[in-house]
Design a protein around this nucleic acid. Sequence first.
DNA 1: CATTAGGTGAAG
DNA 2: CTTCACAA
Length: 604
Amino acid sequence: MATNTSPPVLRGKSTWKGKEQEQDFEDLNSTITYRHILQQNLGVRDPLRVVALCDSDAFYAACEMIRLGVKDKPLVVLQWEGIIAVNYPAREYGITRFHKLADAKERCPELMIVHVATYKEGEAEPGYWDKVDSRTHKVSLDYYRRESAKVLTMFKEGLPDAEIEKASIDEAFIDFTKPVRKELLRRYPHLANVPHDAPNGLDTPLPAPPKVDMALDSNVIPSEADDDTTWHDVALSIAAEMMHKVRVDIASKLGYTTSAGLARNKFLAKLSASYKKPYSQSVLRNCAIPNYLKPIPFQKIRFLGGKLGDALAKEYDVSTVQDLLPVTLEEMQHKFGENAIWVYEILRGIDRSEVKEKSIVNKSMLASKNLQKPITKASDGQHWIRVLAAELALRLNDACKANPNLWPKTLVIHARRGYEVTRSKQAPFPFSREVTVDLIANAGNKLWAELVGKDSGPMKVTNVSLAFTGIEVAEEGQQNIDGFFRADGQFSKRPRESETDGDSGTNAEPLEGDCTTSFSCSKCRRKISLSPTQTLGASLEEKNRALNNLRAEHEDFHFAQAVAREVEVEPEDITEKSVSPGGGKKRKRKDPAPVGIEKFFSRR
DNA sequence: CATTAGGTGAAG
DNA sequence: CTTCACAA
């Protein structure tokens, strides 16, 4: 499964010391002193650093097996005509992704085939249907996202002291350095006390480490010589114990088997995880790094799988790590500039990138649809935008259940015509407490018109996607000042709620009567009141809160109306200037008859 | 070799 | 703001 990554940008200055560089890999065998074990904040330089990469085996397939209560039977997950996941039993028949379904069935007649969940017209939620049709359905990966979240939660609960970085839907990096140091000092308390006769005080090397057997719960990646145990090995073995415990717990409680790699840094952890699969973990000792790394095709290394790796392969006409070791840093810098130091170090088993805990909520949320038959009419685009908007609304509102006050700062639309590059258009997304399908679809349609509307000719759009980006948890007071109001084709600040409601249009003018149960809207000249059930037994504070909610909802209503007026597009001739500024001749579809999916989704 | 439906982060 | 690169 793909991992989410960032390119190999340099973080800070390289500290590689030339020191004639007699040997590659010289950095792997530093002596560990009392200072090293007692100092807590060595970060990526910590000689006792231990990082793991743990990923779920054939994750989508495993999700379906658990959902269906299937065990140990060959199974593939289908997305339209393509196989997107193959469980391990099915792999024994030689089935892989990108096999044709017919081919896979031939290899294994009893193969179980599960199509991913889809949104289907007329259904409220994504589901698993007997018949799927890519012309009308849209894939939903939400089930996998939820299962992924369960696994991540078990990592966090099982390893409270560890730093955990979700790397993709089925992978996480775990930095064990802190919990391991703690356990190391608990098991070997003498390490905490520098002996009085220590020749160099804190900088005295630690006493000899105990013998540890890492093979109890892990595969130990072989080293050339049978090196003595080091303190880093002890650290690795403690981390391996912890990792193993959590993995077993996840397998027993959730049913997902995982594979993990443990090593001194992220890239080696990732590389080690694939040493043996499935349901297995592998440990790469420092002394084993050179031999493990040298024969590996460098393009398998994280960040070298793309253009940079290609460029390296082409430049030196080589393929393995070993092949690149003779290239000097200077030469590499000459050819590859800023990336050179990073590459140079990676080839020697050094990776200074940190395991960074990410926010629980994603920063973006994207719904996308490929059209096998390109769409040519603007109205088709609007149809799919509505479907995508419905999915985004469902997912965002769902995310809000666990994490209230989520607010996407921008809405982005992407479209691809034929085989051209994807183009996008974005605009600030208004704050509103209730994100509705209409709100998203209207804003999306507007962007759609800007993106493809002005181009002439038949459009032949082969992909449409809609995304929220910049999703954040709004701060307490932030909701009141932020929020945008679209006018004249631009979003502008839309002050909200009582303290800033100078021009909000819904001033709470305390008319006659109880100002804690009603307000009047200056925009539509209506008096809005709480219902009797909301006022009956409610305290003043409760009523005020309810009234504020009501006011905000009413404001959202006006906002949606305003956007709807602006966004209204002539479906048939979108190529003309049909988006009139300010909202000229508008008619039709004040509230179109709900069709398909959207009829069930929050139109509220 | 390739596809779909995602994500993140940086460059320009 | 928009595109690109990476991930398999």
